[in-house]
Nucleic acid binder design. Structure first.
Length: 751
DNA sequence: AAAAAAC
């Protein structure tokens, strides 16, 4: 099954590593004679040259040398690598030809996965074939079936997305070729609206006023007509700290998250009578409780008849804005960085109602039920029990279930069942177009969803494929050509393939948005809308998120008909398994406190606000002897996947990530989440902290802030409905040991 | 000023 990644692949690949060491040696021998390299490089040198490039501890012997990790590693110190051998690895002559050779090689190699070792130190390939033979290359963390097939390498001439010159190792800052040497220099980078804008070379960047603001838009500023990110409406004044009334003054006009009528509202009740009022409340323009007589499957498109057609509906101006569903007066001082949307009203499902219900009772077929059991899902979680029958019934569904509550299966299993039913009696044709699509905000999440759904789909003979960016598209297109039933992907590549005519969604009857509220944020929502418009008329839509609120209104408005809205009852902090704390620290202590926080036994996920800081922290932890990797959008996809896998597999215990890892990513037993930078949005807080305490396990979240941020943090926690103690902390404080579990007091805290 | 998503 070359078209899909299998989790086992990684393990299999790792198992080959010892054998690889032998291969590598023979490779070296083959080429040694032709090498003009210093003849003093003996067998051991060659082996460490190869082995050090991999991080596998099992690889040949180098791990016995303390202090030397791998040459590709930030903590690597060459002095310890070779006894007495000169550091110089390239003769002057070789270096002269190196750059030229490299650019040729880059063009040839950029279509396939990046070789794990640094190009400029790699044993020379120039003499022989341009690339090592299959199985001859170092295979750190590589899954064989993930590698593009040979015939897919046609795309080789084209540099990979997000890959700014394959020869630029991210961490080897010192060895990075100067900018002008990089072959890729003339190609503008993604997200770079000015080819001449280097990322790191701050000093070389023209001063702000020199840049001629007129022709080059500022970051995130795409012209006046386009609202700024997070700024929904030009009429809304910008957040002005000074003008903002004190917190206690605000209560009246701005509802808290989860608060439908501020303080005068009675405790939220989950009575059945409220349940059905889902979307129609206070909103007369469109009624979602119109009789659900949409007969979608048979009369594709007919569902639009039970709602006013676009031109019959009140004009845009007459309707409340997208964020004004309930026509609540907007507070003039609302911070622009954390818009609080109304929470959707939903029918809630209590855990007790679900007791004793099986997946089979909910309407799933026996193959699927068995597969779920094999995956460890023996009985349905509440959110699954609620949404599975609704999805099987063909309804549009909005579902909110907190992080780690089993949302993927909640939409995945019934989706497979439904696709299966729609195919019943038909043969699987070659080249059939997909019947269902699942969209996720990040590639890692798309991959993870596929890992969950693929086994379910395969158990009934259906095929899935991932369509996401950062990797060559050849294999994805190949899979689509053969015929795929369920597509799982990220918006960019999906839309790209649609536009190229390589992905046809016209037969796609089910569309799922995972992390739906995030997918509705500015910048994300437009491609998502365009993609959804390509699906079959009247296709069923499923929107899932842990923080599902009215931010999804734009999509609901256009695409959903009489949706069923579900949430799980009693999902408050008391029932949560996550313990939250805020450490108020001095800024100068931050680095050291962070290091001591991650210096512990269990898996720790650290969130940083920027990519650069994430890297910096990972490096800092490494230097302190705590193996750490980073995960953010500046890494190429191979490294992203690999670094996440290193945490999953337990090869490292510390991952420093940007918010790319905030949502959806499931890694077993992360028991501490550290927020090196506090999030700006309460939703981000909820999602980040949701990386721990999954499926009922316990977890802790520690957020570091400075004194100045206390008030903002209080407000944020308020919106997230989380109570967390604020504690002053200094370096070597007992509190830190308490959190990391280094002292017996920790037992008291874990209860 | 920041993350993410295409080639």
């Amino acid at each position: 099954m070359p078209k899909n990644k299998k989790p086992q692949g990684g393990r299999a690949a790792r198992n080959f590593e010892p054998r690889y060491g032998a291969n590598k040696t023979s490779f070296h021998d083959r080429h040694h004679g032709a090498s003009s390299r210093d003849g003093g490089r003996d067998e051991r040198g060659a082996r460490s040259d190869a082995g050090d490039r991999r991080s596998a501890p099992a690889a040949g012997g180098y791990d016995r040398r303390p202090g030397s990790r791998s040459a590709g590693h930030r903590g690597y110190r060459p002095a310890e690598a070779e006894s007495g051998a000169p550091k110089q690895r390239w003769g002057a002559q070789e270096r002269a030809g190196r750059d030229e050779a490299r650019s040729i090689r880059n063009r040839a190699e950029s279509g396939r996965r990046e070789a794990p070792h640094r190009r400029d130190e790699r044993p020379r390939f120039e003499g022989g074939s341009e690339r090592p033979r299959y199985n001859d290359r170092p295979s750190a963390g590589r899954r064989f079936d993930e590698r593009p097939r040979r015939d897919d390498l046609g795309g080789a001439e084209r540099p990979r997305f997000n890959d700014r010159g394959a020869d630029r190792p991210r961490f080897d800052r010192d060895e990075r070729p100067r900018r002008d040497d990089r072959g890729g220099a003339e190609r503008p980078r993604f997200n770079d609206r000015g080819a001449d804008r280097p990322r790191f070379d701050r000093d070389e960047r023209p001063r702000r006023d020199d840049r001629g603001g007129a022709e080059r838009p500022r970051y995130n500023d795409r012209g006046a007509e386009r609202p700024r990110y997070n700024d929904r409406g030009n009429d809304r004044p910008r957040f002005d700290r000074d003008e903002r009334p004190r917190r206690d003054d605000r209560g009246g006009d701005r509802p808290r998250y989860n608060d439908r009528a501020a303080s005068d509202r009675p405790e939220r009740s989950y009575d059945a009578d409220r349940a059905r009022r889902a979307f129609d409340r206070d909103r007369t323009q469109r009624s979602y409780d119109a009789p659900g007589e949409r007969s979608r499957p048979s009369t594709g498109g007919a569902y639009r008849t039970d709602r006013p057609r676009r031109d019959e509906r009140p004009s845009r101006d007459a309707r409340p804005g997208r964020n004004d569903w309930n026509a609540k007066p907007k507070a003039a001082f609302e911070p622009t960085d954390d818009v609080v949307h109304e929470r959707l009203e939903a029918k809630s499902v209590a855990a007790v109602e679900v007791d004793g219900v099986s997946f089979g009772d909910l309407g799933l077929g026996s193959n699927i039920v068995e597969t779920l059991a094999g995956m460890g899902a023996a009985t349905p979680f509440p959110i699954q029990a609620a949404s599975i029958p609704a999805v099987l019934g063909g309804r549009d569904v909005l579902a909110r279930g907190r992080t780690g509550s089993g949302k993927t299966i909640a939409f995945g299993a019934p989706l497979v069942e439904r696709v299966l039913q729609s195919q019943a009696g038909k043969r699987r044709e070659f080249g059939r177009s997909p019947r269902a699509i699942i969209l996720a905000p990040t590639r890692e999440l798309a991959l993870q969803i596929d890992r969950t759904i693929q086994p379910i789909a395969r158990s009934v003979g259906l095929f899935t494929t991932q369509i996401y960016g950062g990797v060559p598209q050849g294999r994805q297109v190949g899979a689509l050509k053969k015929g795929v039933d369920i597509v799982i992907g990220t918006p960019g590549r999906v839309e790209d393939l649609i536009n190229q005519g390589k992905l046809d969604l016209s037969d796609c009857r089910i569309a799922v948005l995972d992390e739906a509220d995030h997918m509705c944020e500015l910048g994300f929502v437009e491609p998502v809308q365009r993609i959804l418009r390509h699906t079959a008329d009247g296709s069923q839509k499923l929107l899932f998120s842990a923080t599902l609120d009215r931010e999804v209104a734009a999509l609901v408005d256009e695409f959903l008909v009489d949706p069923a809205v579900y949430e799980v009852a009693g999902e408050d902090q008391e029932s949560s398994t996550i313990e939250h704390r805020v450490l108020v620290i001095e800024h100068r202590d931050k680095a050291e406190i962070l290091t001591s926080l991650v210096d512990r036994e269990g898996k720790t996920l650290v969130f940083a606000r920027t990519r650069a800081y994430a890297d910096m922290l990972a490096e800092q932890f490494d230097d302190a002897g705590i193996p750490a990797v980073s995960l953010h959008g500046d890494l190429n996809q191979a490294k992203r996947t690999r670094n996440l896998e290193r945490l999953t597999s337990g090869r490292v215990n510390v991952l420093v990530a940007t918010d790319v890892a905030a949502r959806g990513i499931h890694v077993d037993d992360i028991d501490l989440v550290v927020q090196a930078d506090a999030p700006d949005e309460y939703k981000t807080y909820l999602h980040r902290s949701g990386r721990t305490g999954r499926a009922g396990r316990s977890g802790r979240v520690v957020t570091l802030i400075t004194r100045q941020r206390q008030r903002r943090m209080t407000e944020l926690l308020d919106r997230a409905e989380i109570d967390a103690p604020f504690e002053n902390a200094r370096i070597d404080d007992d509190i830190i040991d308490e959190i990391t579990g280094r002292t017996p007091t920790a037992e008291v805290l874990t209860r």
